[in-house]
C-alpha cells in the first residue's frame, strides 16, 4: 500500500513541485498518474522510491515512512520496488542478460537460481532470444522492455513507471501497456506516470490527475 498525506515538495530555488498531496493506492491496484509536463508526476514517483524526500507530509510505502527513512534502510525499500524510469540507465558495456542479473547480484542470489529468474523475466517481456545481445543493438521499444525485465526480476510488490511509452510508436506502446497489465493481473501494484491518453483508454485504470502539483478532479 502507498499512502500520501499532506505531502509538499519544494525544490531548492522555490519551485513547488507538489502541494498538499493526499491519496492512497491499495495493494494490487493499477493507477495512472496523468498531468501536463511539470505537473509533478516524476516527483511523485521519486518520493515513493526515496530518490527525493518530501519537504513536509508523510509518504508511507508498505507500512514504512519513506520520507523519514534512514539512508541505510533505503536499499531494502527499493528491493521491493520495480523502477522503470524515463532516463533508462541501461548498462551498455554488458549483455542484456547481465543487465537483468544486476538486481539479483545486489540481493546476493545464488548464481544458478539468478540465471533462471533473469531468463524468466526476459521471457515475460519477449526478449529471451536477445539475452546475449548488447543493449545498444536493441530498438527503443526493446530497450524499454529490457528496463521492465530488470525492474521485475526481483519480483517486487510495487512497480513504478515514469513515461514508459514516451518515445515509442503506438504499436510498441501497446505492447508495453499489455506487459504492465499482465503484471497487475498477477498481483503487482502498478503506478504509471504518463501523459499518454491512449494508455488510460486502453487500461481503464484508476486515474490521479495532477495539475501544478495538486490533485485535480
Amino acid at each position: 500500500m502507498i499512502s500520501f498525506s499532506q505531502v509538499c515538495k519544494r525544490y531548492p530555488g522555490g519551485h513547488e513541485a507538489l502541494r498538499n498531496l493526499a491519496f492512497t493506492v491499495q495493494d494490487r491496484e493499477m493507477v495512472i498518474v496523468t498531468g501536463h509536463s511539470g505537473a509533478g508526476k516524476s516527483t511523485l514517483l521519486k518520493l515513493i522510491a526515496a530518490i527525493e524526500r518530501p519537504t513536509s507530509g508523510t509518504v508511507i510505502v508498505n507500512g514504512q515512512n519513506v520520507g523519514a527513512m534512514r539512508a541505510s534502510a533505503i536499499p531494502y525499500l527499493r528491493r521491493n520496488l520495480g523502477l522503470v524510469f524515463q532516463d533508462q540507465k541501461l548498462l551498455f558495456d554488458r549483455t542484456v542478460l547481465d543487465n537483468v542479473l544486476l538486481p539479483l547480484q545486489v540481493t546476493g542470489h545464488d548464481r544458478r537460481d539468478a540465471g533462471k529468474r533473469a531468463r524468466a523475466a526476459l521471457d515475460k517481456v519477449g526478449l529471451l532470444a536477445r539475452e546475449r545481445s548488447k543493449p545498444i543493438t536493441l530498438s527503443g521499444g526493446e530497450q524499454q522492455r529490457l528496463c521492465i525485465a530488470r525492474a521485475i526480476v526481483n519480483r517486487p510488490s510495487i512497480l513504478l513507471a515514469d513515461e514508459p511509452t514516451a518515445s515509442l510508436d503506438a504499436a510498441y506502446a501497446g505492447e508495453i501497456m499489455e506487459i504492465f497489465r499482465s503484471f497487475n493481473q498477477v498481483g503487482v501494484t502498478v503506478l504509471i506516470a504518463t501523459h499518454d491518453e491512449s494508455m488510460v483508454e486502453r487500461l481503464r485504470p484508476r486515474v490521479l490527475h495532477l495539475d501544478h502539483g495538486a490533485l485535480g478532479a
Binding site: 522510491a49 541505510s72 536499499p75 525499500l77 527499493r78 528491493r79 548498462l91 538486481p103 530488470r150
Partner: peptide
C-alpha cells in the same frame, strides 16, 4: 557512474 546509479536504484546497499 551509470552502473552505481543503477545498482542504487535496484536496492544495492552501500557495502555492496
Amino acid at each position: 557512474r551509470d552502473e552505481i546509479e543503477v545498482a542504487k536504484m535496484v536496492g544495492a546497499t552501500g557495502g555492496f
